[in-house]
């Protein structure tokens, strides 16, 4: 059970990483563009629960921290996405929940990860935060992620359920 989860999570995280860095970021979308890896983390965590969500979030963040051309504070994405995975895991959706909960979950986590990342970066004295235009980035990330939710989240969630149809409650 766990091995299948690890394989699926690895495959999805790597795919979203490559799509983000090689394809989406080249478009230079106004407002920053979507955060594909966060969508994957939120979908997996919301189906599998808080414990796997925490681990998947940490793994996603660690990949994002080391994959070139990353140059932020090492370990920051790992911490931020770990929290996001835990929070999304607490909501723990099943198929009977209404669709709007997914949208709220995506919007809240998208805004939260940018805020927390910017906050910690500012605390550790990163000169980039001042030039980043954080408010516009929050709005942009939330809007793009909401736009992509119907195309990404149901598919990822279905895959997650297929790999692990009856998640044990931990």
């Amino acid at each position: 059970m766990t091995i299948r989860r690890v394989v699926l999570a690895t495959a999805l995280l790597l795919t979203s990483l490559v799509l983000q860095l090689v394809v989406v970021n080249r478009w230079h979308l106004p407002g920053g563009g979507p955060f594909l890896m966060l969508l994957v983390v939120v979908s997996l965590a919301a189906v599998w629960g808080p414990m796997p969500g925490t681990v998947v979030g940490f793994a996603a963040g660690a990949i994002l921290d080391v994959a070139p051309p990353a140059d932020g504070p090492m370990g920051l994405w790992a911490g931020v996405l770990c929290l996001a995975g835990y929070a999304a895991g607490l909501v723990w959706l099943d198929q009977r929940r209404p669709v709007w909960i997914w949208l709220v979950l995506v919007a809240v986590t998208s805004a939260a990860v940018v805020v927390v990342y910017a906050g910690v970066s500012a605390l550790v004295g990163d000169p980039r935060v001042a030039a980043a235009g954080v408010l516009g980035l929050i709005i942009g990330t939330v809007l793009y992620d909401l736009l992509l939710t119907p195309f990404v989240v149901p598919g990822v969630a279905a895959l997650a359920r297929r790999v692990d149809p009856a998640p044990s409650i931990r």
């Binding site: 970021n25 070139p68 051309p69 140059d71 990342y117």
Partner: peptide
């Protein structure tokens, strides 16, 4: 071949 995301605030390229 790859560019950094806006969410990380860095302007870097691979």
């Amino acid at each position: 071949i790859a560019l950094s995301s806006a969410q990380g605030f860095a302007w870097t390229a691979t």
